[in-house]
Design a protein around this nucleic acid. Sequence first.
DNA 1: CCGTATCCTTGCCGATACTG
DNA 2: CAGTATCGGCAAGGATACGG
Lengths: 111, 111
Amino acid sequence: MIKNFIENANFEDTGFSYTLSLISGKYKMVILYCLMEYEVVRFNELKRYLKNISDKTLSTNLKELESDRLIIRREYPQIPPKVEYSLSDRGKSLMAVLDQLCIWGEKNKLG
Amino acid sequence: MIKNFIENANFEDTGFSYTLSLISGKYKMVILYCLMEYEVVRFNELKRYLKNISDKTLSTNLKELESDRLIIRREYPQIPPKVEYSLSDRGKSLMAVLDQLCIWGEKNKLG
DNA sequence: CCGTATCCTTGCCGATACTG
DNA sequence: CAGTATCGGCAAGGATACGG
């Protein structure tokens, strides 16, 4: 899988590069983790978990995660508005793989 | 593993965050991939594989990868100088895990 | 050949104010 | 409550010149 990336295409076209692009940035992984832990979470709830994130950044990240189909956004047409975010099946399957990175990190942390 | 990160600590302390910090940036993964493929590679050789990378960025990245003990730098005391870079065992073990991300990406790429 | 030094550009992210 | 709009800071990365 990995070993053919150089001959056949450039790095941008690899599955690895694609996967990383889904979770790049400072907060996406933490958002996914929160959704994994709490399952269904509202906007301001997420803001409290992700201490110090700005409205703009959270909003941007949620939109990207949704368009990458890792999370599901469910909007209730009411006043005041209510929106719930949760992991999609696709998002859950990604988290399973990322857990392996977590385990490697715990085992191999230096110092 | 993942599920306890919120209660026990913040995201910065997780193994996952640590692992990602090792390969963050635009080029580190590509460098590791090159070393996996070609095993022993010299500085200017890497520069040719990583089209458009600047001397400074390549130099910085190699130093960080070395201090994180993912790669090995071997210098030959001669003129003109000769330096060879290769994956450490630790680097190889990380690549094995990253391959899983690559596979997930290939399977789940949209469009 | 293998870098370092310097300056510059760019894109992510934060802060704040405002809206349906 | 759940965002959007606008402005601005800051650090990663790029371009180029130079050094051992």
